[in-house]
Design a protein around this nucleic acid. Structure first.
Lengths: 254, 254
DNA sequence: CGTTGGGTTGATCGACCTCAATAAAAGTGG
DNA sequence: CCACTTTTATTGAGGTCGATCAACCCAACG
């Protein structure tokens, strides 16, 4: 499913004590020096000194599948840097209608807005490991580290761009196009984490995909079945394998 | 339509020379000291010294209705702080389908992502006045002014939140709900600029609204007609007057 | 006064939703 | 390990909301 997910979680646990290379944080329970997703995440903006300081603020966190990381309208006391696993971000309407606004994978930052209350819920799809930062402490650290602030700002801009792209997908594309855009887009995101592959892991359910694309579960299922029937992909356990990435990308790019 | 829009544009023009209060920028052609929307905009984060420096980077800009401010996929050489008027931000698919991703009103910043290429097009709906900043110069200034960077970061977070809200609206709401959400949301945004009012100026066409909500022009027109028939609003020139704001807000909040 | 762009309304159509049945997987407890 | 339940996914049949196509209205404007 997700390569090395459990391995990475285990390794982080193994190195939980006394591994901070700068030796300033003997009780740090994260190991930035050996973090494989560091260049993908906010930490990539830091020099070794800054990294060490941030390391001191970090605590290792683990979430089981379905466990809540944030809850809509509830206070946010910590923010997270996802190092392994996958999570879904969603908003609920009072009558139960749900819109998934995104999926988080390793390298993604949860709590980008640093808001006191979360506007959405986040919960783990697979076992998730993350670096946990107290929100207030992180915010204060940010004020001392313009380079990190700049990095977060750029990530926010990127997220904004993705959100707008999603608006186009939901607002103006057909059901089949939406599914193709989702698969091609997710493949691109996984490529940063685990390298380019025609196999796209899908840690989320069809319902999650439907709620992300503004469709029903049946329509998503039918669209995937049709793509499989047309030999554009094959369904594999916990994912799909794209047989003709180029033709699928052509659908995305018009 | 939009109160004082033309007046404000004229006043800015009138004061085009030698008005910087700190006298450091005798050729500055903007007048931050008398800017009514300053607290709403990025400039609200600056002390008078910083404001003066930023003022030195700013140039007054004016756009006629329909004039392009940014063009999708083209290089961005300047960013803007809108001081008067309204603009639409949209993305086009190669086959012509259009998704409006937002509307800019006074206080809004255009080019938040500071990207080299614009991912969307922006053009003026009404005469627009704005403070123009060279992108590179602004970006460099930003690196010296963490307070401003922080402000932009917060605005980006706010925009991200709005974009996600829009995803919910487009993905999970009915046509009538979408229109109501749009009107109530726009009213709230205008309230910051020109005070609370039950009259919501609509400087955009029905087609723009449709492309914002993922609907057709006919559906938007029918929804507004129905709301008028139900005595929830009346259509006025270039806008609508909300007769029962509370009931409309109840639709938004579920 | 004809033209043009924007808006409204009606009639019909179709993409996607809803409801329903079934199948396949994944837990669960003995 | 195997019945049993629960969850998730697929497929079919029929219904509906919003799209499409078309006619018409109205105000602005050269």
């Amino acid at each position: 499913m997700i390569p090395n997910r459990h391995d990475l979680a285990f390794r982080n646990g193994e190195l939980a004590e006394g591994v901070c290379v700068c030796n300033r944080h003997p009780h740090a329970n994260v190991d930035c020096a050996h973090c494989t997703i560091r260049p993908l995440s906010i930490c990539g903006a830091l020099d070794s000194d800054e990294l060490c300081e941030l390391e001191g603020l970090a605590r290792h966190a683990h979430f089981a599948p379905r466990q809540a990381i944030f809850s809509q309208d509830e206070a946010v006391d910590a923010v997270f840097n996802v190092t392994a696993g996958a999570a879904r971000l969603y908003r609920l309407l009072p009558d139960g209608r749900r819109q998934v606004v995104g999926f988080a994978i390793p390298g993604d930052f949860l709590g980008l807005a640093l808001a006191e209350k979360s506007v959405y819920s986040v919960d783990a799809l697979t076992p998730v490991t993350a670096c946990r930062f107290n929100r207030e402490a992180f915010s204060a650290f940010l004020d001392q580290r313009p380079a990190l602030l700049r990095r977060l700002y750029e990530m926010a801009g990127h997220e904004l761009s993705l959100a707008q792209e999603q608006m186009v997908i939901i607002g103006r594309r057909t059901a089949e196009e939406r599914v193709v855009c989702f698969l091609v887009g997710l493949r691109k995101r996984w490529a940063r984490v685990s390298g380019n592959s025609v196999t796209v892991p899908l840690p989320m359910t069809r319902q999650d995909i439907a709620d992300f694309l503004g469709l029903t579960i049946e329509t998503v299922s039918r669209a995937i079945s049709k793509l499989a029937r047309d030999k554009l992909l094959v369904v594999v356990p916990d994912g799909v394998r794209l047989l003709e990435p180029a033709r699928l990308e052509a659908i995305v790019d018009g």
